[in-house]
Design a protein around this nucleic acid. Structure first.
Lengths: 106, 106
DNA sequence: ATAATATGTAACCGAATGGATACGCATTAT
DNA sequence: ATAATGCGTATCCATTCGGTTACATATTAT
């Protein structure tokens, strides 16, 4: 049987720590590739591949500016992650509440 | 050069859609493996492998009950995801705010 | 015109991923 | 005692992943 269709969701995009770091950097504002790549001990083409994945999943956008390509955060897709994690928040908030009442009853 | 050290964070755990679905199911309460597996068109050993990954990353716990293994959500580790996504929330909330004031000024 | 800079793509490689099937081992049912 | 059930593990396989080096292309500097 052929492998199940691959997951092309934003969850794959953020699965890699390098890509998460790129996104974290872009929160501070747009940046060209060289600046992004300078933060990592990887070759620049490796960063280009990460950027491509982020681009294809629409988590970043790119605009050409002279000979540079400036990347910008496009956080809309990340909302899927926030929406997914949302119902879990109740769990550890509840645990904190339990701890609180536990401590109060001691 | 040897591959960079692998990412064993919870972000890897939730990168796979099957594993996310398992976690979503466990939000409703603990369940034995057969019940979890019945929701997917995969073999049971495949689900066992997913469960092992979730176990090793401490996103679920397992207790033996007769010949069943009951899995339970352990959401503490998922807080890492919530914490990571948190600073991004401002972006689309801000966009919504911009839209709101834009509409109000029309 | 030529050189340097910025960046993407192609080809390649080893490791990890996600699946399958075959098997083993407890536990429960008969 | 034997069979059936529940589930993990071993092994295998194709695909994907994340990295590399070599190369191509566009833009800017000299």
């Amino acid at each position: 049987m052929p492998q199940a269709e691959q997951d092309r969701s934003v969850f794959r995009a953020i699965a890699d720590p390098t890509r998460r770091a790129i996104l974290d950097r872009l929160r501070k504002g747009p940046a060209p590739v060289n600046e992004l790549a300078s933060a990592f001990a990887q070759s620049r083409p490796a960063i280009s591949k990460h950027l491509r994945i982020l681009r294809e999943l629409n988590v970043v956008s790119e605009r050409r500016q002279g000979r540079e390509r400036v990347y910008q955060l496009e956080p809309a897709e990340l909302k899927d992650v926030a929406d997914w994690i949302l119902p879990y928040r109740g769990f550890w908030q509840q645990s904190l509440g339990n701890l609180k009442s536990y401590l109060e009853n001691e």
